[in-house]
Write a protein that binds this DNA or RNA. Sequence first.
RNA 1: GUGGGUAUGGCGCAGUUGGCUAGCGCGCCAGAUUGUGGCUCUGGAGGCCGAGGGUUCGAGUCCCUUUACCCACCCCA
Length: 443
Amino acid sequence: MALLTQAIKGTQDVLPADSHRWQYVEKKLLDTASLFGFKEMRTPVFEHTELFNRSVGDTTDVVQKEMYTFNDNGGRSISLRPEGTAGSVRAFLEHGLHNEALPQKISYVTSCYRYEKPQAGRLREFHQFGIECFGAPLATADAEVISVAALAFENLGIKNLRLEINSIGCPTCRAEYTKALKEYFASKQADLCETCRGRLDRNPMRILDCKSPICSAIAEEAPTVLDYICDDCRHHFEQVKAHLDVLGIEYTVNPKIVRGLDYYTRTVFEFISNDLGAQATLCGGGRYDGLIEQVGGQPTCALGFGMGLERLMMVMEAQGCSFPLPPVCDVYIAPMGEEAVLTASMLCRDLRAEGFSAQTDLAGRGLKAQMKFANKIGAVYTLVLGDEEIATGKAKLKRMADGEQIEVTLQGGLVEAVYDDLFADAFEDLNNAVENFGNKGEQ
RNA sequence: GUGGGUAUGGCGCAGUUGGCUAGCGCGCCAGAUUGUGGCUCUGGAGGCCGAGGGUUCGAGUCCCUUUACCCACCCCA
């Protein structure tokens, strides 16, 4: 396939047939967050590279290798955002949102970019829903952030997820833990796999989630973070669990959930799906009380999560979740003859002015072909317009679902008829819903 | 970065030890019903068989090179 007609590796198009899925999912997610008071914020796709270096850290070589970084024509080093948090923090500081009522709760749906080798659930351009909560120290906030994700999954009908939580303490207690971990793994150094031997100095916590059977066996016996965290951190973690218990959110404590970055503190959590391939984490988040200071602000506690939309939709697909299809065409008008074409245009205009979606022939096709087209696009009604209808000013509106014909007058009567009939349907649906409501609990 | 798999009309696929005028299903267009969709039947359009090179009388099929996609490892902010 020619380069010209091929999308860039690791990117995807959302085709007209699928766009409603994205619209539906994005709206559900943002709406769910807004129930908790999170308001959407939009930030640029690119930022100064320095921002990401500062937040994500320039020590992690992978991080550097996987960012889309370039110099713009003014000689600035620019990077496409690899995740949503850094931009949010930057905007929070730049616009002095710390002076507004705290906590500030923000949500976003954005595209992110990472130069990685694509595989199932991993693209170079991918989309994230995320929330951030700034200035909330209490464990209540941790639980609230987790419950936003839990409710979002519930609202989308996603099942078969497990929530794993952990606390990685504050910088002080984590230092002690890291030390203990190093000592432990150093004693087993000879048995560790090659990569883990490399991790020993750099990032011993990472050995905990190594997949090699030998390393994971060794990791089984390793000291647990939870044995090393200080009293404050322990109390905080207990409070988070107490909240989750009260909220009825199920979780398991997994002491092996860790984060590679220093700014993370205390709570970390992941929602993991059983219906995905190797990339099974649907949502990852936690508390990062150190980040804002690291980017240059006053010390401000913060927490949040990011959720991969492609993965989310893969799970929904696998579980047969529904993606409601909005009506795309209330009325299709099939004109026959030159005058009818003009009249059809006018009638469409009138319908649209009333908020109904209306379409007419743009291809000069015969009546039968037009009926087929109307059927294909899912038109709720069709109206055939020929010499006779124009002459008498009367026509028949055909309800496609059952073939029922409704007599209408063209001047204004068409709009009224569509109104009346659609509302009749709506009332019927409403009545059914009310009748069924009583039975629902027993099902 | 490492390994495995796959590339054939818009989509999903078949193509047997090289003999093709490259098929099938869905979709698309049209007709049967000349003013009414879904079902059925009939016809039509649409492919340099991922790209480049080689072997051969002859390559979708064999060899080499290359590119892209998929899956997994690595990694995962």
